[in-house]
């Protein structure tokens, strides 16, 4: 029964989130807005490689393929951390409904997760369109012969990888929401800072081995590192050796971040109750 209630609350929260995200524009305009940003991010890194090739280093097709896939899937990280990073602020200060949701029987847990799932759906659309666009531009228009074949993707590896990766990212977003409950005016910094750290340390646009040796251990504890490794493995672009090992590390780091996020949430919740922060309104 408890699980059924949780799922029902999460579904309703997803629906609210979907409306908040999408009903300000017609579907075509909304879709355009959702896909232009990741496409531009991809074009930035892809053109760096292409411009680099024009200086005489030669086009590194395998590298470009890995970069395209990593950048496309990094959209999950950017969208989930950013959107969940300011969820509490908008519901508490702007719409002033956080306290009502908190005292409802469903509580905040399914609400936060349901809202996070909206970002997952949006990001999934962006990832698919970005990959199709990449094939069309780099292999179609520019005829660069990038070794990406969407029909030969190992779905048995990709699907669990995405499910685990997204779960870890929602746990991260859950933690950001908790921090936002007890903090003030950090909503715009938290999500983007974390996305920036993941972008630098997660092996998105260069291999982790290119990082200074002092920071490589940090990269090794981030789920995003194994998420992107396993995604590249499923596209046949892996460089780390064992796809199953990547998936195993992804599972462990996801469980780890999930436990840590729950602990942070509990601590934040107790503090917020004690200090009366659930209806605190902050302005700039």
């Amino acid at each position: 029964m408890a699980v059924a209630d949780f799922l029902k609350s999460a579904r309703e929260s997803f629906w609210v989130g979907w409306k908040v995200e999408s009903n300000w524009a017609d579907p075509v305009l909304f879709a355009t807005y959702r896909i232009v940003q990741p496409l531009a991010s991809l074009l930035i890194v892809a053109f760096i490689v292409i411009i680099g090739a024009s200086t005489g280093t030669g086009l590194q097709r395998d590298y470009l393929a890995r970069l395209i896939v990593s950048t496309a899937f990094f959209v999950y990280v950017a969208q989930i951390t950013t959107n969940m990073g300011w969820l509490v602020h908008t519901d508490r200060s702007r719409y002033e409904v956080l306290k009502n949701i908190y005292i409802s029987p469903g509580t905040l847990h399914p609400y936060i997760i349901g809202r996070g799932l909206v970002s997952v759906v949006n990001a999934t659309i962006s990832v698919i369109v970005t990959l199709l666009f990449s094939i069309a531009v780099f292999n179609g228009i520019l005829n660069l012969g990038i070794p990406i074949n969407l029909l030969s993707v190992n779905l048995l590896l990709l699907v669990p990888t995405v499910l685990l990766g997204v779960s870890g990212l929602i746990a991260v977003g859950y933690m950001l929401s908790a921090i936002n409950i007890v903090s003030n005016r950090l909503e715009f910094i938290l999500g983007e800072s974390l996305a920036g750290i993941f972008f630098l340390l997660g092996g998105v646009i260069f291999p982790v081995t290119a990082l200074p040796s002092q920071v490589q251990p940090l990269s090794a504890i981030l789920p995003i590192t194994y998420f992107l490794d396993a995604v590249r493995d499923s596209f046949g672009l892996g460089t780390t050796g064992s796809a199953l090992l990547d998936l195993g590390y992804l599972f462990l780091t996801t469980v780890g971040i999930g436990i840590f996020a729950y602990a942070v949430y509990r601590k934040a919740e107790l503090r917020a109750k004690r200090l009366g922060l659930f209806d605190r309104k902050s302005e700039y």
């Binding site: 590298y63 983007e192 750290i197 998105v204 990082l211």
Partner: peptide
């Protein structure tokens, strides 16, 4: 925050030689 992103691109340039 911007230096993190800048760092990623500087390392990318180095990786590409």
């Amino acid at each position: 925050l911007p230096v993190l992103t800048i760092g990623a691109y500087v390392i990318l340039y180095k990786t590409l030689g």
